[in-house]
């Protein structure tokens, strides 16, 4: 499926269930997302992990509403399942889409300015280096007997100084490779929007309306 349309579907579905207390709609999203993930041959362990991740906050929210709040089982269950719907819908997107393909799709299909598509991509590709740099900063401080933790402004300060240097270097590197802001670009990998992409987007969103309309009628 086209990455931009997939993202749009997931966002609209997540947004809609945020404003409705509908257990059936939430479960429909969980099931649909599971089928999609299984059809993409996601590992079972990853799927099981998705069941564990939202458990603590979901149970917390449930008990607060059911035992300490309005005592409405329907509301509490709807919020409990909604947490799962968010996580499964999100995973259906992130576990099957790479940032690179999304950037290409947003640039070509949604006319996102190339400076955003490639600038963000350049930064995201630095993630492993950022992790090691933060570790380096911490270790360098530890060697001088200074402990830098997540509540030390100095850790952020040092990391940001590195980021400023990197952003300048990366931008220079991109420009020297022929990147020009706001100029039309040719593409080596073309991302298309097919009729079936649009069909799936509309079809899935219409399907989601079924339990919500049903609940409205009863």
């Amino acid at each position: 499926m086209n990455p931009s349309l997939k993202l749009l579907t997931v966002l609209l579905a997540s947004l809609e269930i945020s404003f409705t207390y509908n257990t059936a709609a939430n479960l429909l999203i969980v099931v649909t997302a599971s089928i999609y993930l299984i059809s993409h041959r996601i590992r079972w362990r990853a799927l099981m992990w998705l069941l564990v991740v939202p458990l603590i906050p979901a149970v917390g929210l449930f008990t607060t509403i059911y035992f300490f709040g309005a005592h409405q089982l329907a509301t509490a269950v709807a919020l409990f399942t909604r947490m799962y719907a968010y996580v499964f819908a999100g995973a259906a997107f992130t576990l099957t889409t790479s940032p690179l393909v999304l950037a290409h799709s947003l640039e070509q299909n949604c006319h996102l300015p190339s400076k955003f598509a490639y600038g963000t991509l350049a930064a995201f590709n630095m993630l492993p280096k950022i992790k090691t740099t933060i570790l380096t900063i911490k270790n360098a401080a530890a060697m001088r007997g200074v402990t830098l933790s997540w509540w030390s402004p100095r850790l952020y300060f040092k990391a940001i100084l590195v980021a400023i240097t990197w952003s300048e270097n990366l931008a220079q590197a991109m420009i020297s490779h022929g990147f020009v802001e706001g100029q039309p670009r040719s593409t080596y990998s073309v991302v298309r929007v097919t009729a079936s992409d649009i069909g799936w987007t509309i079809g899935l969103l219409v399907l989601l309306q079924a339990p919500i309309v049903w609940a409205g009628l009863h």
Partner: peptide
């Protein structure tokens, strides 16, 4: 905003994310 600023903005976001991962 130039591409350098956009890279920096994204890097800042990732730095915070990386520090908060723990």
């Amino acid at each position: 905003l130039h591409v350098r600023d956009i890279i920096l903005l994204a890097l800042i976001g990732i730095i915070f994310g990386a520090i908060f991962m723990g």
